[in-house]
Amino acid sequence: MQRKKASSHNKVRTLFILSLISYPLILFLIFYVFVNLNSIRMAFFNVKLDGTWEFAYFDNFITFIKGLTETGNVIGMSMYNSIRMYLINLVICMPLYLIFSYMLFKQCFMHKAIRIVVMLPQIISGFVICMLFVNFISGPDAPLSMLFSHLKIFIDDKSGMPIDLLYNEKTAFATTIFYGIWISFGTSLIVYPNAMKEISSEVIESAQLDGVSNMFQEMFYIILPLIFPTLSTFLITGLAGIFTEAGTILAFYETNAPDYVHNMGYYYAKLVKNANETTYPMLAAGGLLMTLIVAPVVILVRHLLEKYGPSTEVQ
């Protein structure tokens, strides 16, 4: 009797599990697994103009690697910029996120208003903000250009006109990076303070008894270890997206970005949009190569973070 009940219970349970997960899994097989297998296959073929495919051995890989290693080639430049972008974000943003989050967590002056305002880029469409930004800083009619010429700063010494931050070799990359950082605080300033909130006040109190008295100590001894999982999630997903993240370059420049602001994500988006279809297999081959490089790195970093990061017992 009991066994029967148990078995019927098991049946219901199996049915329950299957009913909830089978549909997404089927979708996964089609739109992820199959799509990517097809992409891998593509990497080994040439697509002719009439649409027929021809086996190409490693030709596409060789073309991509040549592009990567040739000096001044945009592929190499894109990869360099992608890596730079990730590292700069890491070095500048992470500490800022943490300090600002700490301040919000400590309920600093105007903390409520600040948390609303920092979400503005998310509330207002990212695209709208981006277009506003471009119209605001770039071009002679842009308010910022007017400000520059009024204050006589950022003046191009050759022409005497205010420089266009988006089209000056010295400032363009920095501007795109700045924009990326500038709009990125919203989510972080919700997620990190929320993670910090989960630290019980007892822990902090007992730490204070132990002599923790300032932000550095509190951050280093209490907060960092506790929010480490959140932190490492962002580190890892950021690293995983290193060559797919186009940032805002596509919206800034459409398909006319100068090479020196290219990154991998943008390079791909641009070529899929602009180049002829015979280029696609080369892109697929390059993608496969980069996946083969980045994936082990990500897995290694994750492993290292888990192994050598501060111990975390937070559920």
Binding site: P258, T278, T279
Partner: peptide
């Protein structure tokens, strides 16, 4: 339209980069 990697939209006198 047939050369791999040729940027088709640049016109006939682009500047590299």
């Amino acid at each position: 339209y047939a050369a791999v990697g040729y940027m088709a939209d640049v016109g006939f006198l682009p500047c590299k980069g």
